[in-house]
């Protein structure tokens, strides 16, 4: 995979049957509980491999830790969380590296396998494709509320579970409806929603494709409470930056709520997959997601040649 077009991870073809996928991701704590922070950071790092249709195999820990100010037991808990998530994903931890730093950071470098003819990239959209999102939006805004001490325990618990959930089942569902190893894949593109927000990542898919997208505002799953916190001004700076960067590509219909605009650009932590699937196969994919226990499986819009390289939010 070249560098001309942004994609989720690096891919290197080893043989005709195997390519390796490599990716790395780490960040500062988003929840107070160290164990769950470890789980979330690991799920987030593994996600890029799933988004490309690969299977993660090995990982290494990346740790920055303020040894002077924090107890080692915190680090142990974080790493335990990460390790448990790797076990869940059948990933082997093969090493790692840690440095002393003022600010705590944790994440993984991950290596996965994929068949070279079965890689899901970001930009092979086809006219009429349906867009399916597999986790609700709002984690950036809710994390901001958590930092401000404004989020209820119930909300914290719920989004922790969502952020720590692997995208594995969603990826398996995607592969099962698109089993062809060459040519006729019915899933045409996929990415995972993270720092650029839904519209930021969607814009990356649309750029240079010659096609556009129409999103249906009322079909987009949003975590309850997100609107409340967005209405209180708890929108992270990243959301505004994402908006400034991609605003020119997006057209909002007048009925779209201003708060929803922020939410659609809200940077997500360990967000869901955004899958672009042949219209004929969309229902089958939704059904497959349901069978595999993926709670959120919303058809949020469709690809259309009517809006060349633009996104309409209706």
């Amino acid at each position: 995979m070249g560098l001309e077009r942004a994609d989720d991870a690096g891919v290197y073809k080893v043989t005709d049957d195997i390519a390796i996928i490599q990716t790395v991701d780490f960040f500062t704590p988003i929840v107070d509980d160290p164990y769950w922070f470890g789980q979330i950071a690991a799920a987030n790092a593994l996600s890029d491999v799933y988004a490309m249709g690969g299977v993660p195999k090995t990982a290494m820990n990346l740790v920055a830790f303020p040894l002077d100010d924090m107890d080692m037991s915190i680090l142990r808990e974080i790493m335990q969380g990460g390790l448990d998530k790797m076990k869940e994903a059948d990933v082997v931890l093969v090493g790692g590296h840690s440095v002393k730093d003022k600010e705590l950071k944790y994440g993984l470098s991950v290596t996965g396998f994929v068949h070279p003819d079965h890689i899901f990239t970001k930009n092979d959209l086809k006219d009429g494709d349906q867009l399916i999102l597999t986790k609700p939006l709002g984690t950036g805004i809710i994390n901001t509320a958590i930092k401000g001490g404004l989020a209820s325990n119930e909300v914290i618990e719920r989004i922790t579970g969502i952020m720590a959930a692997l995208n594995r089942e969603a990826a398996e569902a995607m592969k099962s409806v698109s089993p062809t190893l060459s040519g006729n894949n019915s899933v045409h593109a996929c990415t995972d929603i993270t720092g650029f927000g839904l519209l930021g990542h969607l814009a990356e898919m649309v750029v240079d494709s010659g096609l556009g997208v129409r999103l249906l505002a009322d079909k987009i799953p949003v975590l309850s409470e997100t609107f409340k916190y967005a209405g209180m001004g708890l929108v992270p700076a990243g959301a505004k930056k994402n908006m400034e960067f991609r605003e020119a590509m997006v057209e909002f219909s007048p009925s779209v709520d201003d708060l929803l605009k922020d939410i659609l650009f809200d940077p997500q932590t360990s967000g869901g997959l955004l899958i672009c699937v042949d219209k004929e196969k969309a229902d089958e994919l939704v059904d497959e997601l349901r069978k595999r226990g993926v709670e959120t499986r919303a058809i949020i819009g469709e690809v259309s040649s009517q809006y060349a390289e633009r996104i309409l939010v209706d």
Binding site: A230, G231, M232, G233, L234, V235, A237, K240
Partner: peptide
């Protein structure tokens, strides 16, 4: 501008 918007929203809430 972003901080302005957010602070206004917060005060109104």
């Amino acid at each position: 501008e972003a901080a302005k918007q957010n602070v206004c929203r917060f005060l109104e809430s």
